[in-house]
Structure formats: structure tokens, C-alpha cells
């Protein structure tokens, strides 16, 4: 069936299967930043924004996104780069596979929380798993980025 979406500020009309998930739809249209690592809503890697809110695209049906505004990291590349510069200066991206989902959630958090504490940051980002870094470096980078040392 056909759905209409605004992807990264561009209006598109796409054919999707009824049981297709948003992560697969986005990837099949070249938005290759979108990664999956569990498909059971456990890892946060597939995080994108639907109507500017973080959503797990592995468990969102594409048809449910009809008429909505979708943002992937490709659509916020400037902000993503600003944060990535801090993250990489800290050396806290290792394999990088978790980055797209993690970065999207950090950018969402920045809009939502003012001057968050360590505890609030950790709580907000808990759903974003990372097997490489042990999280401490990501926390240092997030705090530097938010200016909440």
C-alpha cells in the first residue's frame, strides 16, 4: 500500500507492505544510517524521530508512520556532526554501530532536558545499548556537549 511521509523535510510517497517495519522501509530507500541489532525493542540502535520524538523503528509499522514527519540522522547532519566531534574527541565511539540511534536520542534529550544531572542523562539514554564502550566515555561526551560538566 502507499504511504505519504515527510522524511528529513522531504515529502515522499512510498509503496510498503502491510507488515513492513519502518527500519526496513527507511533502509530500502537509502537511509542506511538506520541500524538494527535486536528487532525486539531492546537495543535502541534503530532509533529515529517520528514527529520529533525518539521512536524504535524496528517495532514501528511503516503504515503507522503514514502522514507523519520522520527524521533520521541524515536529516540532522549538522547537529549530529557537532555532537560527533565531541564524541570522537573523547574517543568514545568504538565500532560505531550503535552511534546513529544513540546520537538521535542524545539530540532528542538535548531538546527535552535542561541542565540534566548524570542520573537523568543515564536514565534518558538507558535504552541505547552499546557493547563496546562501557558507557563512561559516552557520558563524558554527552556532558561536554550539553555543557553540564
Amino acid at each position: 500500500m502507499q504511504i505519504t511521509l515527510t522524511i528529513n523535510d522531504k515529502l515522499v510517497i512510498w509503496d510498503v507492505e502491510k507488515d513492513e517495519i519502518l527500519a526496513d522501509t527507511l533502509r530500502s530507500h537509502g537511509l542506511l544510517s538506520v541500524k538494527k541489532a535486536c528487532e525486539t525493542s531492546c537495543c535502541g540502535l534503530c532509533t529515529v524521530w517520528v514527529e520529533d520524538k525518539s521512536v524504535l523503528s524496528c517495532t514501528t509499522l511503516s503504515v503507522r508512520a503514514h502522514g507523519k514527519k520522520i527524521t533520521t540522522i541524515e536529516g540532522v547532519s549538522k547537529d549530529a556532526e557537532d555532537f560527533a566531534r565531541v564524541l570522537t574527541a573523547e574517543g568514545s565511539e568504538q565500532c560505531g554501530f550503535c552511534s546513529p540511534g544513540f546520537v538521535m536520542n542524545v539530540l532528542a534529550m538535548k531538546k527535552e532536558l535542561v541542565n540534566p544531572s548524570d542520573k537523568e542523562i543515564i536514565h534518558y539514554l538507558t535504552g541505547n545499548l552499546c557493547r563496546c564502550t562501557g558507557y563512561m566515555g559516552q557520558l563524558r561526551a554527552v556532558k561536554t556537549y550539553l555543557g553540564v560538566q
Partner: peptide
């Protein structure tokens, strides 16, 4: 020196550089 990784920016911003990203459709 704590130098930034040479592939750091690409992998931190979701560039298509992993196996599946390179596969033919």
C-alpha cells in the same frame, strides 16, 4: 596523544560503511 580515530566522524554520524550498507540491492 589522544588523537581522534581516523574513521571516527564517519562511524559516529551513521555513514554507510558497514557490510550491509555495501551490499548490492
Amino acid at each position: 596523544h589522544g588523537i581522534r580515530k581516523i574513521d571516527g566522524m564517519a562511524i559516529a554520524t551513521g555513514k554507510p560503511v558497514y557490510t550491509l550498507d555495501l551490499a548490492m540491492s
